[in-house]
Structures are given as structure tokens and as C-alpha cells.
Amino acid sequence: MYENVMKSAERFKARPLGRDQKIGGMKQREDLLFMKVEQEQAVPFITWLKELGGFGHLVLFTAVDFIEQDIFQITYLLHSYEQHHDIVVLVEIDRQKAEMESIHHLWPHAATYQQELFEMFGITFPGSPRLYEDFALEGWQGPPPMRRDFDTKEYSEKTYFPRPGRVTHDPATYMKEQLYPGEAQTW
């Protein structure tokens, strides 16, 4: 399986990410593979994975906002039931021109993910059905809330009547002082 995917990955200019290296002292799962693809090659590569590679299940489809690098990273998590193997396809798109090809022709339920991504990140997927309809936020006005330049705390304080008197404590010191004042520190 691995060789097969790798061979086609070369064709689609996809490169695997750190399969053998340890991340955070932990060895990566054997049945999980991260692939990074260019934006133009992404949908052809995913199509190949679905139709010929046997990865017929779209498990997850989301985006991450890397505001420092001015990109959105779109993540497709595919699963193959025959091989019991996951593949994560990572695509970086420009944050200023947030537009990605739709994959609703491959999996109809991807349209719902795309609807959500448009609502939360403002990423458009031309041709995707029901894209501009309300999904979770009914009648949202303002910038997409999951973009990191949107200050949720400020928005919440402005909109939702914060109750005065909220304090934040460090749990460890607070418990030591309030709940067990006489006990010696054991941690």
C-alpha cells in the first residue's frame, strides 16, 4: 500500500511528512500518513486516493488558520477500510485569496463541511451546493469567527452582557490556599 501511494504521490508532487521521525518524543502511529500537496494538485490527488487508492471514507475535513504565515491549512482526513489506514492530506492556501476547489462531487457530505468552513473561516468553494446558506450561525454579521484576527473575547464582552466579578485563579495555587490550607505540598 505504502509503495503504491508513494508512487502516485510523486506524480502529484505530494510529499510525505515525517513518517519515521518522532514527534514530541512519541513515535507516530503506523497506520497514519501525512501528505502535503500543492493547491492545484490537491483535488486530483484526493480523487486518485478515493478512486484508485481505496481511501473511500472522508473522515474529517477542516481548516487551520496560520495567521503568522498568512495561510490557511486545509486538512482532509481519509480512511481506507480495506487497508485500515488513514491519510491526512494537507493543503496550504493563500489567506488573502481564500478559495479552494470543492470536493462535493466525490463525497456529497463534503458540501456540509464546506458550508461550515465558509461560515467559520470565510473560505469559498466555488460550485459547492448550499454554500452561502446559514449553517450554525444564523444571521452572523461581521468577520468569520474562527479566523484568528477576530477577537472573540472582545466581541463576547461587547455583545453578551458579561457578568461582573469574574476572576481567574491558577487552579493549583487556588486549591492549595482555599481548599487544603493546612496541608503540605505534595506535588
Binding site: K153, Y160, F161, R163
Partner: peptide, 19 residues
């Protein structure tokens, strides 16, 4: 429902129900 709890700074969750 009292003050937003752990979702107090969320963009989509109300803080005070009694409003």
C-alpha cells in the same frame, strides 16, 4: 447560564441567561 462558564469569551454563547 450564570456568567457564561467556560464559554464566557465565545463568539456565539450568551453569558447571562437572565437578560
Amino acid at each position: 447560564t450564570i456568567n457564561g462558564g467556560m464559554y464566557w469569551d465565545s463568539y456565539n454563547t450568551i453569558n447571562r441567561l437572565d437578560h
